[in-house]
Simulated assay, not measured.
Amino acid sequence: MLWSRLAFPLLPMLMAAAPAAAQKFETPLNPAADHTKRYDACLKQARSDPLKALPMAEKWHADGGGLAARHCVAVAMFQAGRYVQAAAQFEAIARDMGQDRPRVRAELWAQAGQAYMEVGGAEKAAEAQGRALELNGHDADLWLERALSYAAMQAWPRAISDLDQALRLRPNDVEILVLRAAAWRNAGNPTRALDDANRALKIASDHSEALLERGFAHLARGERAQAIADFDSVLRLVPPDSKAARRAEAGKRGEPPGAQPSAPAPPPKPGGNR
Rank of each mutant, 00 (worst) to 15 (best):
D141Q: 14
A57C: 08
A152L: 04
Q79E: 12
A244Q: 10
F231Y: 03
R246E: 15
P267Q: 13
Q226I: 06
Q79R: 06
M117S: 08
G130K: 01
M1S: 15
L54Y: 11
Q129W: 11
P157V: 11
R192V: 12
P270A: 13
A86S: 12
E107M: 07
A200N: 01
S161T: 12
A155W: 03
A17P: 07
G271D: 14
D96E: 12
E127F: 12
G222M: 14
M77D: 13
A20T: 09
L135R: 15
R146P: 14
I176Q: 10
A140E: 01
P157C: 09
L177F: 14
A106Y: 00
P266D: 07
V238D: 03
A193E: 05
A193K: 01
Q114G: 09
W156T: 04
A204T: 10
G121E: 08
Q260F: 11
R38G: 04
A147E: 00
S242C: 11
C72A: 11
G215C: 07
G130L: 12
H35R: 03
A126F: 15
L29P: 00
G81V: 09
Q226E: 14
G272Q: 13
M77A: 06
A265P: 10
M153T: 12
M97S: 14
N136S: 14
N189G: 01
K59M: 05
V174S: 07
M1R: 15
M97V: 07
W60G: 00
Q89H: 08
A250H: 01
R70A: 06
G272R: 15
R168D: 14
R131S: 13
N30F: 06
N198L: 14
P50N: 04
T27V: 04
A57E: 10
K124R: 08
D96Q: 11
L14H: 05
R253K: 08
K124A: 09
A147G: 07
L108R: 02
P267A: 07
K243F: 05
A62K: 11
R274F: 05
R199A: 06
Q260M: 10
R221Q: 15
W3L: 15
A183V: 00
A46D: 02
P31Q: 07
K243P: 04
T36D: 15
K202R: 15
I228R: 04
A140H: 02
R103C: 02
A41Q: 07
W184C: 01
R101N: 03
Q45I: 04
A210D: 13
R247M: 15
P102W: 04
A22P: 03
N198M: 05
F90M: 05
D196F: 02
L167S: 02
R246A: 08
A151H: 01
L6Q: 06
Q45M: 14
V104I: 15
A128M: 02
A151I: 08
K52C: 03
P270K: 07
A159R: 06
A217R: 10
P12T: 05
A244N: 06
H61W: 13
A92W: 11
A88M: 05
V104Y: 02
E223Y: 03
V104G: 00
L14G: 02
A33D: 09
E175Q: 09
A94M: 06
N198P: 05
H218Q: 03
I228K: 02
R214M: 05
F8V: 06
I228G: 02
E118I: 02
A187C: 01
